[in-house]
């Protein structure tokens, strides 16, 4: 319980520091580390594309297969399209991507920052008059803020594509039928609900990863411990946030 409280305090402190740095950098845009951000973006965004496409494709396919298998008993095969469309765009797309980013990039952030701390690189930076939040953390979080929404969009498309293929091959639903039914089943709202969550997930994953990374002390064991904690906490928070968003959207009737 005490630990959860401490985690919340650390999270809030990092968020506060980040906001201060954003304000400062916004007033002197020249100090923003563009090269570093682009570098991170390539790692957490561009290089994640293949695996995200593959996994979401498979998830979409499985959803469709299960849907068809069960709906067929009621002769309601066609509803599989509604299910896949709504589920993927509202929930599954963003959650799968967030979980993958937490496991793939969140852990990498923690391990990198942690080993930089172990080797006193962060101290060296500080003694040269640099702010580690500005130099190390801001570029990483900005990269996530850009990458996660894009990955969510791509992942959702890939999942729907997978669902459509299965619906065609396994359920005998023609792609034309799939598309026109999909257009009726979903609206811009459905899409927005999913996409609006993406940057929040990015922020949660990024902050948790950086907080954990900066907690690493001395030993390799500590590094391993905090990397694990980073992934577990980030995934937990992603799910909690998703639940909170679900309640919020239900209350405003979306």
């Amino acid at each position: 319980m005490v630990e959860v409280g401490q985690d919340l305090v650390d999270f809030a402190r990092m968020l506060g520091e980040l906001i201060t740095v954003v304000v400062r950098v916004a007033s002197r845009p020249r100090t923003f580390r563009l090269t570093s951000t682009v570098n991170q973006l390539e790692r957490v965004g561009w290089r994640a594309v293949p695996i995200v496409l593959l996994i979401t494709f498979l998830i979409g396919s499985i959803l469709a297969q299960q849907g068809i298998f069960h709906f067929r008993k009621f002769g309601a095969d066609i509803y599989v399209i509604d299910m896949v469309g709504v589920l993927v765009l509202r929930e599954v797309g963003v959650i799968i991507v967030a979980v993958m980013v937490a496991g793939r990039s969140g852990s990498a952030y923690t391990a990198e920052l942690g080993s930089m701390r172990m080797r006193e690189e962060v101290d060296a930076l500080r003694t040269m008059g640099f702010d580690p939040t500005e130099v190390l953390i801001l570029p990483r979080i900005v990269a996530l803020l850009i990458a996660v929404p894009i990955l969510t969009f791509l992942g959702s498309m890939s999942a729907i594509y997978g669902g459509a293929l299965v619906a065609w091959g396994y359920g005998g639903i023609n792609p034309d039928v799939f598309l026109s039914r999909l257009k009726e089943a979903i609206s811009l709202d459905t899409f927005e609900v999913g996409m609006i969550k993406a940057p929040f997930m990015a922020l949660v994953i990024g902050i948790v990863a950086c907080v954990e990374g900066f907690k690493v002390e001395g030993s390799a064991e500590s590094l391993g411990l905090h990397t694990t904690a980073s992934v577990v906490k980030a995934i937990f928070l992603v799910i909690v946030f998703d639940g909170l968003f679900a309640m919020f959207f239900a209350s405003i009737g979306k």
């Binding site: 690189e121 101290d123 060296a124």
Partner: peptide, 30 residues
């Protein structure tokens, strides 16, 4: 701070930068 230089026990070179970039890092800024 600008008047002192520090050599840490394990060097504390920035591992993601080359030797050249490491040495240029403080100069590039100031």
């Amino acid at each position: 701070e600008r008047r002192w230089g520090i050599l840490f026990q394990q060097g504390a070179l920035f591992s993601s930068l080359t030797v050249r970039q490491n040495v240029q890092f403080p100069m590039r800024e100031y």
